[in-house]
């Protein structure tokens, strides 16, 4: 079974050895191999080329490959470390590692900062926060007057922007998250602790490789 698996993986562009990825992430070798099963499913759902395209992420998240979403776009961009328009296996595992229950909280906080820093200026700016609030209202079919949105954004921003310079820097973000820990709730995926149980058919073959 191990040989069958190895033969297929070597043909996949961007494939990296599970031992290397396990050393750099909170995952064990078996868990990385189980993640490869998930990766194969995701990366073959629209274009069967062993790489995750944006449409494939959208399909997995929304059951609709054409549904655009500001945050799904940002997640895709952050996973696509090489910025070549696709998510490779190594990028997938390293990025998901931040979502592991055992990953450092600092990494989770940093990831959310980058997620919300829409224009990648190194700061979360007021206009970005307003844009995100408006995107959520649109996504949720909720209507709020512009005055109410402005008030919510102002209040949140003044609480987070401790230095009062009109932008939230990484230190201010860290402080704000420490006061509001639910902000990184999405950054922990309990599924990742049981990833080998989620894909039990694969555990049989990984046990052979782990014992080698």
């Amino acid at each position: 079974m191990g040989c069958y698996h190895s033969k297929r993986t070597k043909e996949t562009p961007g494939y990296e050895e599970p031992t290397v990825l396990a050393a750099e992430t909170p995952f064990t070798v078996s868990e990385v191999e189980a993640l490869y099963e998930l990766f194969k499913k995701l990366s073959s759902s629209v274009i069967d080329d062993g790489l995750i395209h944006k449409e494939e992420l959208q399909l997995a998240l929304f059951r609709n490959k054409n549904r655009r979403n500001l945050f799904a776009d940002r997640i895709f961009d952050l996973f696509d470390v090489k910025r070549n328009g696709v998510i490779e296996f190594g990028e997938f595992v390293r990025s998901l590692g931040v979502f592991h229950p055992n990953a450092p909280v600092e990494d989770k906080i940093h990831f959310t900062f980058r997620l919300y820093d829409l224009r990648q200026t190194g700061f979360i700016e007021r206009e970005e926060l307003k844009e995100m609030v408006l995107a959520i209202l649109h996504e949720s079919d909720l209507l709020l007057s512009d005055d109410v949105v402005e008030t919510i954004v102002d209040k949140t921003f003044s609480d987070a922007d401790l230095k009062g310079d009109g932008k939230i820097d990484p230190e201010e973000w860290k402080e704000f998250v420490s006061k509001n820990p639910s902000l990184i709730k999405n950054m922990t995926l309990p599924y990742l602790k049981d990833i080998t149980l989620a894909f039990p058919s694969f555990v049989l073959s990984t046990e052979v490789e782990d014992s080698e």
Binding site: L61, F71, A72, M132, I136, T156, N186, I195
Partner: peptide, 25 residues
């Protein structure tokens, strides 16, 4: 209770909830 815009974003955005990736089995 104070309405925190970031909390609103993180709790409401389906694009920021990756748990559905694991339901593709």
């Amino acid at each position: 209770r104070f309405f925190n815009a970031f909390e609103f974003i993180s709790s409401m955005s389906s694009g920021f909830d990756l748990s559905s990736l694991f339901e593709t089995k």
